[in-house]
């Protein structure tokens, strides 16, 4: 493990927690739009981000209303989601457009989180499983499959950013003025 890898993993965790915190008014409960979930799509570009994302989900679930239960179930959902995304990313060259692969990958967090959070709320709070799962899945769909795919399609045009997230080696120094397009 190189230092660059470690600091990037750490930053992904921090980003996830901050985004959950900034938009915390809609990040918890059974009807949730957790903007931070966009970050799971990072695994699509580099599979090293899988573990930090799982940890980040666990950390940001601590202040949730269901507490440790949410840490366990929400984290399981995210774990399965990132595994699915890594799987799709493995075959991403088979797709004609990158965003189609991204969209298919984004289905995994939708389904996994819907299932696990739905299960959690039906087991511990007595909610009906199907309705809760559907409402969580809907929130995830809006955030990841809609917002996330747009954000990452924009970001993937920025070559500098893509180099930044996919390489662990220092390849050039930067002073903040160089943009991906200008190279």
């Amino acid at each position: 493990m190189t230092i660059k890898k470690m600091t990037k993993m750490a930053i992904v965790i921090a980003l996830y927690v901050v985004l959950t915190y900034v938009f915390s008014f809609m990040a918890y409960q059974n009807i949730q739009f957790r903007i931070a979930e966009i970050l799971v799509l990072l695994c699509f570009y580099k599979k090293d981000y899988a573990i930090p994302l799982i940890i980040a989900c666990a950390i940001s679930n601590i202040p949730s209303t269901l507490g440790i239960i949410d840490v366990v179930f929400g984290t399981m959902g995210t774990a399965i989601a990132v595994l699915g995304i890594v799987l799709v990313a493995h075959f991403k060259n088979k797709f004609r457009h990158a965003w189609i692969a991204l969209l298919i990958a984004s289905m995994f967090p939708v389904i996994a989180n819907g299932f696990f959070v739905g299960l959690e709320y039906s087991l511990f709070a007595g909610y009906p499983f199907v309705e809760t799962a559907l409402s969580v899945a809907f929130g995830e769909f809006v955030v990841i499959s809609f917002f996330g795919v747009i954000v990452f399609t924009i970001l993937s045009r920025n070559k500098f950013f893509m180099q930044l997230i996919t390489t662990d080696l220092a390849f050039k120094s930067y002073d903040g003025e160089h943009d991906g397009e200008k190279q």
């Binding site: 660059k4 600091t7 990037k8 921090a14 950013f161 930044l164 997230i165 220092a170």
Partner: peptide
């Protein structure tokens, strides 16, 4: 973008 730049600097 800012976050990833910071991680590079920290590394």
């Amino acid at each position: 973008i800012i976050a990833f730049k910071r991680s590079e600097e920290l590394a």
